[in-house]
């Protein structure tokens, strides 16, 4: 239980890390084994053509449903993190509202195959071309690029767990009521992540590289909001009537 810094012991970091890793394993939507089994199940040529022939509204709705489903698992991830539930309700809502999509994007790298640039979507893997009908090629290709770059860091499940938590419990969100409390927790998570990454990676800069991806995560979320606003201008009834209520609450 030696002290690493004032008020932080190795024992406490380990408890925080184990709690976060457990939460991640319980709420990650697909286990590593399930993903392994699905690995080379790709959508067929006919299935991809079927996605491409959908109307823009229908595919947007399908994607909104999948994103919302993933977000529900992220909410549960947060709820099982002891430190997160000790924050005030205002900050819990704020952190989830602003960070849930970023966490989904981090988690996405688990379900991304960098060997053929495919992502797990509705039960099988498919490439970017599957999403053509959305009409936001820039966003889709940026998301795929991000997933590929995250995969190249070869993060373990533990590292993905801790990095997801660090992205969620972020002091960069405006209007936090207790920013110092959030900062203390985030620092401990990064300490724990650093400790684990030093053991697992030859590259001393692995953590710095990972932190360096955070601006891209924020940019992807901004781009998503912009695309949604543009889509809603053209198809307000689709969004109002057919999109999941949680998706509208978070992004509208």
């Amino acid at each position: 239980d030696s002290q690493l810094a004032p008020g932080v012991s190795m024992g406490e970091l380990d408890r925080i890390a184990q709690n976060i890793i457990k939460s991640h394993l319980e709420t990650c939507q697909y286990t590593a084994e399930e993903l392994q089994q699905l690995a080379w199940q790709t959508h067929s040529y006919e299935e991809v053509k079927m996605y491409q022939s959908k109307s823009r509204e229908v595919l947007w709705q399908q994607c909104a449903i999948q994103i919302t489903h993933a977000i529900q698992y992220v909410v549960e991830f947060a709820k099982r993190i002891t430190g997160f539930m000790e924050l005030c309700q205002n900050d819990q809502i704020l952190l989830l509202k602003s960070g849930c999509l970023e966490v989904v994007l981090v988690r996405m790298c688990r379900a991304f195959n960098p060997l053929n640039n495919t992502v797990l979507f509705e039960g099988k893997y498919g490439g970017m071309q599957m999403f053509k009908a959305l009409g936001c090629d820039d966003l889709v290709s940026a998301v795929f690029d991000f997933a590929k770059s995250l995969c190249s860091l070869q993060l373990t499940e533990e590292e993905i767990a801790l990095f997801s938590a660090a992205v969620l419990i972020s002091t960069d969100r405006p209007w936090l009521m207790e920013p110092r409390k959030v900062q203390k927790l985030q620092e401990k998570i990064y300490f724990a992540l650093q400790h684990i990454m030093q053991k697992n990676h030859m590259d001393e800069d692995a953590l710095a590289k990972l932190i360096g991806r955070i601006p891209t995560l924020a940019a992807l979320c901004t781009l998503h909001t912009e695309e949604l606003q543009a889509f809603q201008q053209l198809h307000p009834e689709t969004v109002n009537v057919l999109f999941p209520p949680l998706y509208k609450e978070l992004f509208n």
């Binding site: 529900q72 909410v75 549960e76 709820k79 809502i93 989830l96 509202k97 949680l246 609450e249």
Partner: peptide, 17 residues
């Protein structure tokens, strides 16, 4: 914030699913 995020607030309040 709670008023504008009823669903999120409810998810946070509900017992673990």
């Amino acid at each position: 914030l709670k008023e504008k995020h009823k669903i999120l607030h409810r998810l946070l309040q509900n017992s673990t699913s």
